[in-house]
Nucleic acid binder design. Structure first.
Length: 297
DNA sequence: AAGTGAACCTGAAGGC
DNA sequence: TGCCTTCAGGTTCACT
């Protein structure tokens, strides 16, 4: 389920565990995820200290001392959990046996941070659409997975003018354009639907139809930019609020419960006040789209 | 070139 | 109970 907000929540959860820690052990428990693990995957990571944990769109990037970086994607079903290793009252009692590994636990990192007990960080991914790759820090931005990514929908990078320029001349439905990572990077199926509802824009509308002439403002593009920034920011905030000491009580990270306005609400009344519409489900590009045909134009 | 649909893989849920 | 179909928050590739 990871879109940008979930990945950012995972990043914030792992950051205090990983940053400054040394990866003392790596286990790849199968030869591949979506892609084969790169050559010398385990050897390259073992013994390296994590300098920083970053994110680009839906990619997690662990910057390692020594010039390498680990690029992770969670795919559809990937998640990390940090093993708490018993009670906090008995530090240093880390157990090395793999007694608690579960189905689809594909990668196990053991990290040691200063005097604290070693901890295991486990990557679980039933569908194996996730992947882990290695890159050189100096050419990270040119890595094939990152080079073509579009603008980040966080902060102030994404403006109405930017969307107007990106969408101008495009005949594809605006919903499809939002999912195109080469334009805006990090929007997934849920937040595309949610943002379009907030902006009162029909997902069927051609993307180019909200663009203004170059240099002119577009009220629709401005609405969409604001909706995207807000829905992403609120989701990150909600995710962060679920983190207790950066680790959820069950040890898992990143997946928060959120009540969506239209996503997965086919047949329910539109939650917008003074709108009498009923949420519809349509299929665009093979993916479900949920929207209100009354207030979204 | 841009747009659409299938493919990758497993598990959950619903219909019969 | 069990078998079948459909669907799932992502990306890539092949085809029109």
């Amino acid at each position: 389920m990871p879109e940008l907000p979930e990945v950012e929540t995972v990043r914030r959860g792992l950051q205090p565990v990983l940053e400054g820690a040394v990866i003392v052990k790596v286990e790849a428990r199968r030869p591949d995820l979506r892609f084969p693990f790169p050559d010398r995957f385990v050897e390259t990571l073992t013994g390296r200290r994590v300098a920083a944990l970053g994110r680009r769109a839906k990619y997690l990037i662990a910057h390692l001392e020594g010039g390498k970086a680990l690029i992770c994607h969670l795919g559809m079903s990937g998640s990390f959990r940090v093993e708490t290793n018993g009670s906090a009252a008995t530090p240093g009692t880390f157990h090395h046996e793999r007694s608690k590994l579960e189905a689809h636990d594909h990668v196990v990192f053991t990290v040691k941070n200063g005097k604290r007990a070693a901890r295991r960080i486990v990557f679980n991914d039933p569908r194996r659409f996730g992947f882990m790759l290695l890159a050189d820090e100096v050419s990270l931005a040119e890595h094939p997975m990152l080079a073509g990514l579009g603008v980040e929908p966080t902060g102030n990078e994404l403006s109405g003018a930017t969307i107007s320029d990106l969408f101008r001349g495009r005949a594809a439905p605006i919903k499809a354009a939002l999912l195109d990572q080469r334009l805006i990077a990090g929007i997934g199926n849920i937040y595309a639907c949610e943002a379009l509802w907030r902006a009162k824009l029909s997902p069927r509308r051609p993307a180019g139809s909200i663009a203004a002439k170059p240099g002119k403002p577009s009220a629709r593009a401005e609405r969409l930019a604001t909706a995207l920034r807000e829905v992403i920011a609120e989701a990150i905030e909600a995710g962060g609020s679920t983190l207790n000491d950066h680790i959820q009580p069950d040890g898992s990270l990143g997946y928060f419960q959120h009540r969506f306005k239209v996503y997965d609400r086919e047949g329910e009344p539109c939650p917008r006040r003074e709108c009498n519409g009923i949420i519809q489900r349509i299929v665009q590009g093979g993916r479900s789209t949920f929207y209100c045909p009354v207030c979204q134009r």
